[in-house]
Simulated assay, not measured.
Amino acid sequence: MELVERCIVFLMMTMVAVQVSNAAVHKVGDSSGWTIIGSVDYKKWSATKNFQIGDTIVFEYNAQFHNVMRVTHAMYKSCNGSSPLTTFTTGKDSIKITNYGHHFFLCGVPGHCQAGQKVDINVLNVSAAAAATPTKSPSALASPVPVANTPAPSPNNASPLIVAKGAFGFVGLAMTVFSSFYF
């Protein structure tokens, strides 16, 4: 019985580790980093990412020539870094995303933002976005498609396969396997 308890504790710890590992780390600008050299298109870069709460955004840059300022939308649009919400200057700044919405960053060195060194990290609330998306109804002009005369599938006496995703599915599978050995 002690072995079963150890297995359960191990599985619970594994479940926590898997849940934590779902967070992604995004290096701004990928291999180019946070710079004005090389014409990095940060708008295009951020558009290719799927940012989630819990993800970490990493700005890597030469601290002698750049910084990172978190700013408001108006400041972002006008490249105004005169009163940022937060300033980072280490050269390797990690910022954890803790809420949905837009997170605006720019380089406060004169001329850098105007040269394109600014990024909008947009964290979508996927469930809210899906609920707000209207479903398309069929057009009144569309002609109906006839239903094919396909026979119904024959009944299957096998028990249904229920698939659980993520850490809970892994834990459930592991518990089932371990219980078959000990019970």
Rank of each mutant, 00 (worst) to 15 (best):
D30M: 07
S31P: 02
S31K: 14
S32Y: 04
S32R: 10
G33K: 00
T35A: 04
G38T: 11
G38D: 09
G38Y: 02
S39R: 10
S39F: 10
D41H: 05
Y42N: 11
K43T: 14
K43H: 04
K44I: 03
K44H: 10
S46R: 07
S46L: 09
A47Q: 12
A47D: 13
N50F: 06
F51Y: 15
Q52P: 02
I53V: 15
T56H: 07
I57H: 01
I57T: 08
I57P: 04
V58G: 05
V58S: 11
V58A: 14
F59S: 14
F59Q: 10
Y61P: 07
Y61W: 08
N62Y: 00
N62S: 11
N62R: 01
A63L: 06
Q64F: 11
F65W: 13
N67E: 13
V68H: 00
V68N: 00
R70T: 10
R70Q: 15
R70E: 15
T72F: 02
T72N: 09
M75R: 12
Y76H: 14
Y76L: 12
K77G: 06
K77T: 14
S78I: 06
S78D: 14
N80T: 08
S82H: 03
S82L: 10
S82F: 00
P84V: 08
L85F: 00
L85R: 01
T86N: 12
T86C: 02
T87S: 11
F88E: 07
T90L: 08
T90E: 09
G91Y: 06
D93A: 07
